[in-house]
Design a binder for these strands. Structure first.
Lengths: 188, 188
DNA sequence: TCCTTAGTATACCGATTGGTATACAAATCG
DNA sequence: CGATTTGTATACCAATCGGTATACTAAGGA
């Protein structure tokens, strides 16, 4: 692992568990076993480090969700795939997903929120497109694709958060439960 | 408005928009028009100020939700009341709800998370009790009260967040939509 | 009136903040 | 080989961090 990777790894661990603003650059470089000029050589600023962290990890989540979210006239199947994609990713990159989750509702004028805004928007867009297409096959869904996208992602993040904190496990059963509840509610 | 109230007000605005760790005590006292010893006289520490902020505002949310969540063998009605209670509160105390929301998924080892943990637990407990009682009338809900509570609160917070950012408005229609989706899913 | 208490300001504390000027070493390239 | 680029450390910067010692004022009770 080269120094750049060491810095990313240390920063991920610290940001995800204590928060961006609560962790100083000195602590990061100490944990990485290097010094500050090296950090600033690779990332330019503390904010640049955070951005690089998101760019490094988000791309693979984005690709996975994008593939899962291609609509083929079977909404239940597609939603299952999307939830599965999120669960697989979050389970494989637990620390990173913790970080992304902690930035999801960050204060609007904070650095973390600005850094994560594009990521949130890209996820929202993928899901909006999906529900927009699905509305062609399910007339009663028309005009609600934005709400569906937001609440679906909200539900996924709720389940992931429960799992990351040990109150559930991201297995096939939870995927089924999540999708079923989203589609049919709690009464069936 | 006395000095204590001035400090609480300034701190709320700053914490909610920029985040607890990103705002220094000096900035808070400057905004309040007083000096540091006054802040430490009333709150003891920066963390104590945050705690006082939560205690000051959460109680009225808790009372409102507790009344709304008393089950009388009509789950749809009760859920409507709960969502309405949240919307009314969040709309009346927008800044505070932004703060509470930003701390909801805060990193586990951060001060904000520890400060908000009890609040999260109390809300979860209210909703768990509700779904536990409801499960007596709806057999197919049995054993899922924890999940229902978590996802219901997750959905409420998703809707509130959308509204606080201007993508929806917390009116009766949104209450109906939220409850309907939670109970019957998206297909009806 | 005297004493105590609450509240507030001035001025300061050591530690840490994000960030950098300088120098040097290793690798790369012509 | 010599020159240039990349990477890294030492040592430092002004500014800010959370917090406080001291002194003062105003108010209330005995």
């Amino acid at each position: 692992m080269d120094n750049r990777a060491k810095i990313l790894s240390s920063a991920l661990k610290l940001f995800a568990t204590r928060g961006y603003d609560a962790v100083g650059t000195q602590e990061i470089v100490d944990a990485a076993g290097i010094t500050k000029p090296t950090l600033y050589h690779y990332f330019g600023s503390k904010e640049g480090l955070l951005t690089a962290l998101l760019e490094t990890h988000f791309e693979s989540l984005y690709q996975a969700v994008r593939e899962a979210a291609t609509y083929q006239h079977d909404l239940p199947l597609t939603l299952n795939r999307v939830v599965l994609a999120y669960f697989n990713f979050a389970d494989k990159h637990r620390l990173y997903y913790r970080l992304q989750l902690s930035m999801w509702f960050a204060p609007v004028d904070s650095i973390p929120f600005k850094a994560v805004a594009e990521i949130n928007q890209k996820q929202q867009q993928l899901l909006e497109d999906l529900f927009l297409q699905a509305a062609n096959d399910h007339g009663n869904m028309k005009g609600r694709h934005r709400m569906y996208a937001a609440t679906f992602l909200g539900m996924i993040n709720t389940y992931v958060s429960l799992s990351l904190n040990g109150y559930a496990s991201m297995d096939d059963e939870l995927v089924y439960k999540a999708v079923h509840q989203f589609m049919h509610g709690i009464f069936s």
